[in-house]
Design a protein around this nucleic acid. Sequence first.
DNA 1: TCCAAACTCACTCGAAAGTATGATTTTGAG
DNA 2: CTCAAAATCATACTTTCGAGTGAGTTTGGA
Lengths: 137, 137
Amino acid sequence: MKRTIVIFGTISIVIILLFQVSKFSLMNTQGFSDVFLIISGILFIALGYFITKLFYARKHTNSIQEIDIKRIKELNISKQELKVLGLMSDGLSNNEIAETLFITENTVKSHVSKILSKLNAKRRTEAVKIGRDLNII
Amino acid sequence: MKRTIVIFGTISIVIILLFQVSKFSLMNTQGFSDVFLIISGILFIALGYFITKLFYARKHTNSIQEIDIKRIKELNISKQELKVLGLMSDGLSNNEIAETLFITENTVKSHVSKILSKLNAKRRTEAVKIGRDLNII
DNA sequence: TCCAAACTCACTCGAAAGTATGATTTTGAG
DNA sequence: CTCAAAATCATACTTTCGAGTGAGTTTGGA
């Protein structure tokens, strides 16, 4: 918020200054100067460039997919289930997941089953895909 | 290539036109006009905006991980195997893959087996993970 | 404290997945 | 045209998954 205000304030000031400088230059010079016009144009283009870059940078960092906690809660997926899902997406077998989490394979199986039903998936590969698409993993 | 030339040509023309219009307007008007200056500035800013957006769009599509054809050849993965791998990563079963590609499940199995050995994976989920990491899918 | 949800585990059974081997047909590059 | 690689399919066998059911234990919040 604060940052937004500072940035937009700065931009506004720069624009106003640009216009003022432009006006003075044009008014005080009798012989009109091509060079000035070109410089002025370039400055404005540069301004457009920075503004656009700013917005793009913002959008970009936002789209670097952070895990969607809200959706996890909506789907009623528990902590342990999420861990299991993550290990599934790493390509581990039920047995390997069991060893990683210090639980039995049977327990892993029951977690997996619940994950599949909650994500509406038929297979673990599908669950992983859905999990990825929903930004859950 | 062609597209690049067209785009840059267009931009060049627009810029030149803008400068010409600016010059004429300023020379023919005795009383200097604020309105004109503002419009001119906005136009230039818009130009900067479009140019920047163009470059960003290009960079962006490039950074959206294009498939690494070189590595596919290094790993000696064939076309059909790649298709199968892609369908695996979509969470399809061997049977579904078979129906999608109009081949039998047995054939799919042999493809999958080859993929697993080529990617050094023990399971299809692992193969998918490796494939993703290597930008093969 | 009490309870629902989460976590844990087990057992069975059927369905997928994966291995191994071998054989035939297509295809593409030289 | 030729030949190797790719693609196709099959059969038999093993392993892993996943469904379904049931039940004991933890845990966090009202």
